[in-house]
Nucleic acid binder design. Structure first.
Lengths: 218, 218
DNA sequence: TAGATTGTTAATCGATTAACAATC
DNA sequence: TAGATTGTTAATCGATTAACAATC
């Protein structure tokens, strides 16, 4: 049954980086053991949920003491594949693309952006935050030569599908899509859509509810 | 029972901007009627799910024909409160903050970033993408005078809580938090955490699964 | 008209939470 | 030791999906 690894619930996967963040804080403070009660309190979650999530990393704790901080951290890095960084290419050197190029700490998340691409000649053949920006026609060659697996799309919606097609042709196997467009890709390519507007929608609705029903703390 | 408005499922709220995007595409093409089958197909969702979600906007369709594009679009804008834009302030004029300042189309999402703030004097008293960047000590006065309700945090994790405190003191009621820190705020302030690392974690796990189990398309 | 699509009610599925025995 | 915390099994909750009568 090759479906086993996929069976980790999506909400669990999404919470795991927050656990990692906490564990790194504990590690900085030289704390050796941590309980799910500690972690849950900091993240405003229920201890039982943290415990259930932790189980997916394969680490077992010890009753009364909790988990070893370092061991748990390493297990999470392993689980996410963030212990060694993967190379990635970014297409679309606009405002958002530049931000990702300049985002230190993205390497802590297992990603190393090698270079950027843009079809606007005004943006190419210079560096943004120390990364070279190439004309987009150079992408297939560079991607293939370096066996890049991950592509990041930060182009406008209208250009997103053609960008995805180009990445796929160039051998990319995973796309981090920051455009609002739904991408069509072959089944062996995974896409993760990062949708700011979804988050903003939640904020908008929460704000409206809070104004309409003050003190509604449930 | 004042809990009623909150009872819209969170996943529904997150999907709604994607529906809006599709409806605007249809509107551009001068399409008058749209069915949930159409929308679902474009977003790779089930029609029944789209129909269930639409019900929360209060709009009813007509059997055999579907929904009126314009009517549905307006209902969604109304539902999200994106029909008139709210003013917002942004704190942290680094790479990500600059990106948000330069992000056209954020006004389509009901947000109008009035100004930015930073505590680094090197970044202040100039404009980024046409928006003034002020020293952070000027925030309370500007926020109060303009009755700003929304604050955007794009500072590093270490400075996130103090930024949140400042925003709250200045009368902000909603915080869009792009830092990995969990913020403590009074109960009448809503926080939406935007967590890139959660998305990247999902991508990492999907990629690993796809490599380990090729052809696993389910 | 016939067929596609809606809205509603019920069934299923999956994630969260609770309960509790085991234990360092 | 006593008490806190783990891991497991069961119960609950909420969202998704299915079924289907109503209908333009």
């Amino acid at each position: 049954m090759n479906k086993e690894p996929l069976s980790v619930p999506l909400p669990t996967i999404r919470r795991i980086p927050a656990y990692l963040h906490q564990l790194q804080e504990f590690q900085k403070k030289k704390v050796e053991w941590v309980s799910t009660t500690d972690i849950a309190q900091r993240l405003e979650l229920k201890p039982i949920q943290v415990r259930k999530d932790m189980a997916f990393t394969g680490i077992t704790g010890t009753p009364k003491r909790g988990y070893k901080v370092t061991e748990l951290r390493n297990a999470i890095l392993q689980f996410l594949g963030w212990n060694n960084t993967s190379d990635a290419l970014l297409v679309g050197a606009g405002a958002l693309g530049s931000a990702l190029l300049g985002y230190h700490g993205i390497t802590d998340h297992g990603l190393n952006i090698i270079a950027a691409f843009d079809k606007d000649p005004a943006k190419t053949d210079k560096k943004i935050h120390g990364k070279e920006v190439f004309p987009v026609h150079k992408l297939p060659d560079i991607a293939a030569r370096m066996f890049i697996q991950i592509g990041i799309i930060t182009v406008p919606a209208a250009a997103a599908q053609e960008t995805a097609d180009l990445l796929v042709e160039s051998g990319i196997k995973a796309i981090w899509n920051f455009s609002p467009a739904k991408l069509k890709v072959p089944e062996d390519v995974v896409v993760q859509k990062e949708d700011l507007s979804a988050g903003l929608a939640v904020l908008s609705v929460k704000l409206r509810n809070n104004i309409t029903n003050p003190k509604d703390e449930e």
